[in-house]
Design a protein around this nucleic acid. Sequence first.
DNA 1: ACCCGGTGAGAAAGCGTTTTCTCAGTTCTC
DNA 2: GAGAACTGAGAAAACGCTTTCTCACCGGGT
Lengths: 344, 344
Amino acid sequence: MARKSASGRIGIADVAVKAGVSHATVSRVMNGNFTVDPDIAARVRAAAAELKYQPNPVGRSLALGKTDTIGIVVPDLANPTFQAILRGLSRAAAQDGYRVLIADSFEVSSEESILAGEARRRCDGLVLCAPRMTDAELEEIAPSLHPLVLINRTTAAPDIPSLVVDYGKGVEDIAEHLVELGHTRLAFLAGPPRSASNELRLKGLEEFKAAHPDVEVTMLEGGSDFNTGHEAVDAVLASGATGILAFNDLVAMGLMSGLHERGLDVPGDISVTGFDDIPFARYTTPALTTGAVPITELGEQAWHQLRALIRKEGNETPGGRYQPRLEVRASTGPARAPRSAVHG
Amino acid sequence: MARKSASGRIGIADVAVKAGVSHATVSRVMNGNFTVDPDIAARVRAAAAELKYQPNPVGRSLALGKTDTIGIVVPDLANPTFQAILRGLSRAAAQDGYRVLIADSFEVSSEESILAGEARRRCDGLVLCAPRMTDAELEEIAPSLHPLVLINRTTAAPDIPSLVVDYGKGVEDIAEHLVELGHTRLAFLAGPPRSASNELRLKGLEEFKAAHPDVEVTMLEGGSDFNTGHEAVDAVLASGATGILAFNDLVAMGLMSGLHERGLDVPGDISVTGFDDIPFARYTTPALTTGAVPITELGEQAWHQLRALIRKEGNETPGGRYQPRLEVRASTGPARAPRSAVHG
DNA sequence: ACCCGGTGAGAAAGCGTTTTCTCAGTTCTC
DNA sequence: GAGAACTGAGAAAACGCTTTCTCACCGGGT
């Protein structure tokens, strides 16, 4: 009667007994190996079906040395940007039969490398979003994480593709746009101090300032979430700027909300821009002018890069660079009292 | 020289050789078994550190019969509700050292049960969000998925906790609220036809209609995303209703956006309500009146229920019922031409 | 009639851990 | 000082699968 093995779950052995063949043959049949006599194969399949046998993936993984699972490390699952990356990654990976294991570091950068290592060991590859990790730390652990794909970070180590968004250029474009609207006093509501993508934005702003010495650009401390923007209202107003570049859409939305509470009109009194073009950006009132990043596509691309690494294919285009597209909506408008001449 | 095993990765065997002890002893030391001589333990630890040995989780899982991983099946990762559940689940599980494997069924309900089975076999337990799955199908696969926690579904099978949101009562509360504001013509912009939670809302509306025979309630077909709401503008206007209950916040936001484009004022001309209270609901203009569901907490609770099952603890409170809290914001206001007497 | 290549299936060796079993060496007891 | 109780570590089995190795068997060539 005791047909099932000790564990309670039915295993390959049970099927073998029921079909009157060896474990090996069952395995062969289950894996579509055609060196098995059709009659026997049928018997095995019948037995498997009757017992509702499903191979244990852990045993399989151990024998095969692969898990058909990839990991992704994100700093904050509440952030729409990482949600979108996860979505794109998950969808693309699923198409190739891979699953995604998530590791949320909850913005604790000290956890990131431990988490990454743990996740990597359970998976066949890893996608790492670690904006707060220091370069040194990244450089140190990156090789041990291979196959690895980096998002918005780069490393000197070879064989590690990086998918980066050109935040610098994006911010420049937005600043240009504001200038064209006649704004001469801008303010940048920065992101988290140690954020890599914030650094890129700052670099872009430097370029912009060099090209436009006449435009005043105030730097304001900030963060990456809605509250940051909401709480920055006073600082923004104190700056006297009429064109505000927020770190991202969330911050911009918080800022707009705060400005609205103060009875200020966007873009009548102040123009506000975001970054990322999260799904909700087009639905704020006014709709948010922002730098659109094809972020879901980036997640998808991350999988393709990772897949090439896992399959040890020659990666035709290792890494990739994404240019944000300026998405002009209703949150930006002409400066109230244009001092400088308007083009055209 | 060949200190590393065939696989390339260093394993317990390498540490054993380097420390001059057996595999068993290394394992004991790594697992903090104190029946090992301190000197030997120190030697092992030194060897492990020097080789940067990290136990292979797959081998460990096979021996231990557990993976320290749980799975979650969601119908759509783009939906803020499921993102929030995932977040709560992931955070709570991480605190107990568990990871989360995600399985997105992309609204393909036929995939849900296969996906669920696959995910379950790789994990120690499963959280299932399968709003489109038929009751029969659910009933059939649920037992094979144990340990299992259901979100917004119930099953006759014992030992399967269900975490359900009382959408019916929530919708009733919202309808009451609109009536109190003087609205006598309401419309319900329904969710996906075969959605379980939509059924619950409809039941709630039946209750409401029974209690308020004087109020007219129009049923409109719909869906669950932003576009649904946006495209429903004509139907909504045609209904002549002044108080609209949207299936969820996304739909409500789409509707408001569409109404705004038509030059209509919310809540001046029409009051709009959502459901869920997603993070963005408070930041729409006007801020959205909605039925707030503590959705992240629900994800957290899902883990606690699952944990009890995994640990085979007696589950003190199997399952749970969440009452939505009416969150009155600015998207609802007095009916334009109140025909009925206003209370008080 | 003998040998050889080919075919198909079982036996067994991994994969990398944990854990039971076993046993040598110590310490304790009377 | 001899046997019992204990301690600590190695040998080996187990976890569930895949895959190589091995070998019996069959048919065909000389």
